[in-house]
Amino acid sequence: MAYPSIAIPGQPLGLSSQYASGPGTHVQNAHICASILGPVVEYAQDTKASSGKTRDSPPPVLSVQRSAQLVSNDAALTNVLPEVDAVVLARVTRINPRQATVAILVVGETVCSDEFQGLIRVQDVRATEKDKVKIFSSFRPGDIVRAQVISLGDQSNYYLSTAGNHLGVVMATSDGGNTMYPISWKEFKDPVTGVTESRKVAKPF
């Protein structure tokens, strides 16, 4: 074995005529060089990709593994992204009469490592009587909302919808700062003051 067990960035690992460059490596002066710190792995190239040439087998691939990939388990590694039709949990960050901006915290069953910004437009809040919906009486900043991704949206926002019985606000705090409980499909009640506030309520399971 010509290459070392642990590579450090910039270290030459082998000639590019003998090996192919895999993840974690780059080619410099006809040498495969490591670009990250970690153990070196050699594996045979996927032969299906280069089925045109049958005579000579493709060179083996050299790659450097990220050490953290081996240390951490797979669950932490998989970085989930919201996709269309996924049900997400999001926190309302700000509202205006046309839309509510939210931060997506959970996609499906997986907690995101990073928050994603999403948007609930006024016409996507509920399925019926869309023209009568008021964002102000559906969401408030700080509410936790269960919503469905309807579009990957523009470059900064995912577009979400709460049209559906099971979608809407699942957790809300009142003006007084108390956690409220849902009493109907459009109202939450403060257990301390007894005041009701209107929301687009998600049907509890």
Partner: peptide
């Protein structure tokens, strides 16, 4: 940057 695992050509 090495600890973060960001690929670099050299130090």
């Amino acid at each position: 940057l090495i600890d973060a695992g960001i690929p670099m050509t050299d130090y």
